[in-house]
Amino acid sequence: MTALLEVKDLKVRVEDNEILHGLTLTVNPGEVHAIMGPNGSGKSTLSHVIAGKPGYEVTDGQILFRGEDLLEMEPDERAAKGVFLAFQYPVEIPGVTTWNFLHTALNAQRKARGESQLSSPEFLKKVRAVAKSLNIPQDMLKRGVNVGFSGGEKKRNEILQMALFEPAVCILDEMDSGLDIDALRVAADGVNALRSPERAMVVITHYQRLLNYIVPDFVHVMSKGRVVKSGGKDLALELEASGYAQFEDAA
């Protein structure tokens, strides 16, 4: 079986600093992987490189998506293939309504895949159903993308997109940052509803707390640009008790 996402011995630098020093990760369909680690361990860099954010130089290694070289693709091609990054800090785009943005993005992805374009009524029907399932009020769709949204609303908007675009792999970058416990629960419920045997998730987080709500199959600990330990969900609890300090030296 071809893995959904394979990161092989990935080395990444930003300007003169190497951030990832040979990172390897294999994600199969249906799996939920948690990546934990202290600040500066390279967790977000990994998510950005997978999504194709400019400014990172891959000096060695590979990222394969269903066996295809992801690093050769533009960010929009990756999205159309089914790679989704839920941003730690979703940007605000004044003047572009959420509704228009979602419609444009969905049709762009469909076009890239050779699928038919959704008309406004077709799209409306689809987005309404998804928004309802996530308890997102209609008026949020009429507002500018993330403009004036609370932290919780911004994350719900990311999950709405995830539900709408139906990606094969979702990278959730610090989804818990800036959320209180109630907002966290709502966001986690949204993510859990999207778990399926075909879809994989990579949950990047600093804290174990999120993993009480999104229970992972695998936990990886990152430190200084490498995965230093992998295990089952219990590894997260272990970390919560003992902290990251033990891995600082290991790295």
Partner: peptide, 28 residues
């Protein structure tokens, strides 16, 4: 804004489409 462009591209918009949407918003 590069960060806005990347956000849109990560959602499937080509560079020109992402620019077009931001220009529309700018003159909107």
């Amino acid at each position: 804004d590069e960060s806005l462009l990347f956000y849109l591209r990560a959602r499937g918009l080509s560079e020109k489409e992402a620019q077009a949407l931001l220009i529309q918003a700018f003159v909107g």
